[in-house]
Structures are given as C-alpha cells and as structure tokens.
Amino acid sequence: MNTTILQAASLPALLDAIRARARLVAPARDGERIHFRPIASAAELVSHRDYINPRNSIKEFFFPRTEPLLRFDRAEAGIAVAPADTTFPPTVIFGCRPCDARSLLVMDPLWRWDYTDPFWFARRDATTVIAISCTRADEACFCTALGSAPNATDGADLLLTPLDDARYLVETLTPKGQAITSLAPDLFAPGTGDKQAPCKPAFDTLPPRLDLDRITAWLAANFESDRWAPWSYKCWGCGCCTFLCPTCHCFDIVDEGTYRRGQRRKNWDACQFPTFTLHASGHNPRPHQAARWRQRIEHKFNYYVQKFSVRSCVGCGRCIRHCPVNMNILAQLQQIASL
C-alpha cells in the first residue's frame, strides 16, 4: 500500500491541477442542497466536514437520469439512425464517501451481465474516483451493517482520510489514482498515519453487522408473507429512494421527439411505480405497494445476491434520510434478521 500525506491547504492546488485536465465533479452547494455536480473552481467545493453524504449519489455520472441512445431522422430517402457517441471526457469525482465508491463495484457485474453496456464502462474508464473517509455518521448511515466501513477503499482510486484539520492520509489504490498524484507530485509527501482513529466517531455511531445470510434465506422463503402489507402501508410509492440510491439501476427505454425526428433515450425507472410492471394486457403482477416494497427488498438482498454474489446496497442511508415518509430500510433488515 502506497500512502502519502496531503496538506489540506494544498487541496485547491490539487483540484486546480485536476481541473486543467479533466471535468471535476464534487459536492457543491445550491441553496440548502449539497449535491454532486461539475464544479468550475476549488472555491465551489463544500468541505467534507459539512456533509454526511451529498443528496444525489455518484451514480448519475456513470448512468445519467436520461441518456440518449440514438437519434433518428425520417426523410424521403428513408430513416437515418445515428448511434450516440460513447466517448466521454476524462472526469474526476472528488469527495464521495466510501459507500458511493463501493457502489461502482456492486454495479459493474450488472452492466456486464448478458451484455456489456458501453455507456457504463466507457464512463467507468474515463472516470477517477477520489473518496474521503467519514469522520462522522448519522442515524441513517449503515455501511458497517453490510460489512463495509467508513474508511473502506473498495471502488476508490484514491482514498483520503482526514488525520486532522490540516492533513489527509492518502492511499493510492489504482493506476488511475497514481495518475492523479503524478499531476502534482510535490503535494504528496511520503508518510503514513492512523486511519482508524479519525473515523472512530463514525464507527461509534454506525450499527453492528447484520446477519445477511439469514436475511437472504428469509427473503427466499417468504415471498408470500403476510408481513409485507403492514410493512409497506406507509410507503406512498414515489421514486425518491430508488433515484437517490447509488445501486438502483432499473431503466426504461423510450422514443421521444416528433414524427420526423427524435431520440431513443434510456431513463431511470423505479420498481415503486405502478407502471413499472404493468403489462400491455392491463394485468399488473405487482398490483399494490406491498408487492413493490417487497420487490425493493428482495431485489437488493436476495435476487441480486443469487445473480452476482453481492448485496445491491452499500448503506449510504440516502433512502432513509430523504424518504418523505421515513421508510427505514435498515430497520426493515433488522426486523427480518430478528424473525
């Protein structure tokens, strides 16, 4: 493991060096909302001390809300179809949490399941992820319940752990991470440090590890359980949880435009919407919210495990923090684990 020390005061210089060569995405403030978006200067960056997790996940920089797949033009001579460009600008995502970095590894097998998605992987190749360890957590965070940690390295190219207000411990984890430190080698001094101690307040807040195998077994055996209805009465079926989730990946393909020209687009879709499973016949195999909430839990903690041997959840807590009715997936999992 190659570790170095970066002075916090040097961060703007590093970000400027990155900005000169790549699109820089980082947590920034718009009104009261702290969210990931491209930033034009280091001054727009929000300090990692000011957020637990930004509102959106980094998912949208690999799998955007709306993605044009092709363009079509209808003319006298016939229909001309032009596929979308899958070359993307070099991008550096700065300041995501280890949970978001890990979400990329959770999603990779999905996007190469029976077809290699060129959009996802071209963006993955073009993007470098610089994560920052969490020095605190809130009651919605639960990465540890899923076996991860607030200072985990999975999925990150560089991990910065704030040793104190003045210094970051930098772990260079991949060649892409190496390329970042090479942009400004003078800023990275040889050195090491204790990456556990600064994260202790986060560890102290985070919940204990769940018995995930027990949960998966219960889910596999209890598709028809009567419990799903009362568990989901309060869920009103919006897409807030799935759209903020770093690992929800369902999409719909639509053709939009006029008779003469338009685009085929890939849009986020949500299993919580009634139309998600509505058949052309009018039949809906998931006719009520209980079936849709069940799908969310079964997919993340049973089906995805069967297919890809990993849970489709990283414990970022956004679905709990921002659920308008305070649905709590952690409490749901703890409840299932106790059955």
Partner: peptide, 10 residues
C-alpha cells in the same frame, strides 16, 4: 427535476 414523482405521491 428528476421525475421521481414524489410530489405527486405526496
């Protein structure tokens, strides 16, 4: 807007 329809469901 990300079209999550939370406004409608709310």
């Amino acid at each position: 807007c990300i079209r999550c329809h939370a406004c409608r469901q709310a």
